[in-house]
Design a protein around this nucleic acid. Structure first.
Lengths: 364, 364
DNA sequence: TCCTGTCATGAAATCGCTTTCAGTCACCCA
DNA sequence: TGGGTGACTGAAAGCGATTTCATGACAGGA
């Protein structure tokens, strides 16, 4: 019906509708609707945006015209006036693997629920042209960004945009910015205590991601604190940093195993990928997990339950982080004055085979 | 000039500029730049959009003014005139797991490279309010959509939008729509032949995703054809359909194993998830892979190389699919008249432990 | 009867940009 | 010297919505 160009009724009596619409069919505008309904554009606009200001009889006429012409307001024009696009930016440091896709999934679902759309951007560190980033983000109503390292350049840029911002994963000091955080310490403590329990291991390690990474820092700190509380303050070699990657975990473990260490030890990894690398190395070196080496990961991405032995890990509600970020952002959009929040989402140890030989394997 | 508040020259001689800027700092507009540079808005616009039409001296003045005022064109106003937003829609049936995140990663990188941004939407089948989908997608310049089942409602909606469209994963008959496809048959044939080779198995199975799914159909067809070519035309029970999920793979395999079957057989799964489920079931039933059961997956998501035994699978260049889709879309945007393409991306068998006990384990 | 207050509506200004159209100016050639 | 040419530039007309302000009709109160 959108495509119904019923004789413009104006010019000639009966110009044959053949070859009528040279492909350039312009969408119906508010003007067309107004004309068709015999009212002014103001009235049409009111019917759409403030019904109740217009009498039921006219409203009905207008609605009919809208229906008939398949009218949809032009979002650019609308945005020009209202300064709203109903699009939210969702900026990630990268898009890779389960971790980010979960985050995005939660965010997208929530955005949709609230009538918004998501403009995603993986702000790859490589691309140093700030113009790129700014360019299209300038039409979003707000910005949810995941920032993993303090002093991120991206955050500064974002502030300059003067947009409502919510940051995931990093607690920024700016009191005007909402933050959605993960309660790393509970999970890390649970995991560490779990590793300490039952057969107390020779030695416990924390194998983290990048040293600058906020999550890694928190997890490492809690690890150390928990050990200290148990009277086993860790040495410098027991807390190490690297990258959030399978390769790094493998590398580290292979080295340790080469040195003959690690048997009878326990490892808390900075995330599941690292844990998987360690698992792999153990396998290659014929070290039995969990009998000779107990491993706990972090994040509980899907893969954790699919590897053999299945990976104990700390569950982080990633989808919920994304969803909460969007919800908070929308709340702020609706009520700009509200005080910024610091929302902490819980984490929880999930024990599987890699740290407990009695654990059920299952439950994908 | 509408907004030029420097002494209207009319009323009072010298109203004091104190209390001048209450926090509402409006972004500089093209008018402000024009005024600051002492030129017309037309000239400013030209400096930005068609340099070469303006003399170097004026251009310099204008650039200085832009710099000084931190001027950024208003995207709504710009869009209103040009009908371009430099935003592309990227519609997925869902956002879940490695599969879609890879797709998205490739797409995002390419979009960025080309100066576009991505508006993502997981068109969850639940949400049946078409208005939702249409709403913000109406400001995109083009739409890349993954469609896995013929006759998708979403595709029709998209066509109504009259936007340039590129479809991933499904070959649509509409000759005006570009398609980015995966060469399922090569991969499926390689995989099937691989399973037939060396110790010829008792029986070969194809355990697919949804029967309506286009990829599954192609893969199943090739599987059957290859078997037939080898003189071993498959029975009805050898090609089965279910869902793209670990659970389905597990369920199917567990049933077969219960019946005592499957030992000495080979399975080609519709995707890696299904294969993983089968692997899991085999493990639970103490069936040795690959000695007693050989398994090949499809897609080569990251997890395939991380499970034990590592999973043989057909590599599908997911990121490349996404990137190609975007590239094609942009190409069409730049040259609307170009004939629609059918781009086939290659697939390739990757042999790992789950189908070949001599395979190297490694290479994550 | 006249004045005032509501309600429904339309005319027109505005948002910030692009683009057409029409100069202006300097210069060159016949 | 007159007219033609080309290079720059500015005025102004949109693009399609929202919103202010004015208006007309009508009802109620003095």
């Amino acid at each position: 019906m959108a495509s119904k160009p019923p004789q413009p009724a104006g010019p000639g009596p009966h110009q044959p509708p053949k070859s009528d619409s040279p492909p350039r069919r312009r969408d119906a505008s508010i003007q067309d609707v107004a004309a068709a309904a015999g009212v002014s554009t103001a009235t049409v606009s009111r019917v759409l945006n403030s019904p109740g200001l217009v009498s039921e009889t006219t409203a009905e006429k207008v609605r009919k015209a809208i229906e008939q012409l398949g009218y949809k307001p032009n979002l650019f024009a609308q945005g020009l006036m209202t300064r709203k696009s109903h699009v939210l930016g969702f900026a990630l440091p990268d898009i890779f693997g389960e971790f980010y896709s979960e985050l995005l999934r939660g965010a997208d679902a929530e955005a949709r629920r609230q009538g918004y759309h998501l403009l995603v951007g993986a702000e790859s560190r490589k691309d140093d042209n700030p113009a790129n980033g700014n360019l299209a983000f300038r039409l979003v109503d707000g910005l949810a960004m995941m920032i993993t390292e303090p002093n991120d350049r991206l955050l500064k840029q974002a502030k300059d945009l003067q947009l409502p911002i919510v940051v995931m994963d990093l607690e920024v000091d700016d009191p005007s910015i909402d933050c959605v955080l993960v309660d790393n310490s509970t999970g890390a403590r649970e995991a560490t205590e779990h590793l300490l329990s039952s057969q107390p291991p020779e030695k416990l390690y924390f194998v983290g991601g990048p040293k600058e990474n906020f999550d890694t820092q928190e997890r490492a700190a809690t690890f150390s604190a928990t050990l200290k509380a148990a009277g086993r303050a860790p040495g410098a070699d027991q807390v190490v940093y690297g990258r959030y990657a399978v390769e790094w975990g493998y590398l580290w473990a292979a080295q340790q195993l080469g040195k003959g260490g690690l048997r009878g030890c326990g490892v808390l990894a900075g995330n599941d990928e690292i844990a998987l690398g360690i698992l792999q190395a153990a396998h290659d070196h014929k070290v039995k997990v969990p009998e000779q080496l107990r491993i706990v990961g972090f994040d509980d991405t899907r893969i954790a339950s699919l590897v053999r032995p299945s990976l104990s890990t700390v569950r982080v509600p990633l989808a919920e982080v994304g969803a909460t970020a969007i919800a908070t952002l929308v709340a702020r959009l609706k009520e700009p004055g509200r005080p910024a929040e610091r929302i902490h989402l819980p984490t929880k140890l999930v024990v599987r085979e890699s740290s407990d030989k009695n654990a059920a394997s299952g439950g994908f």
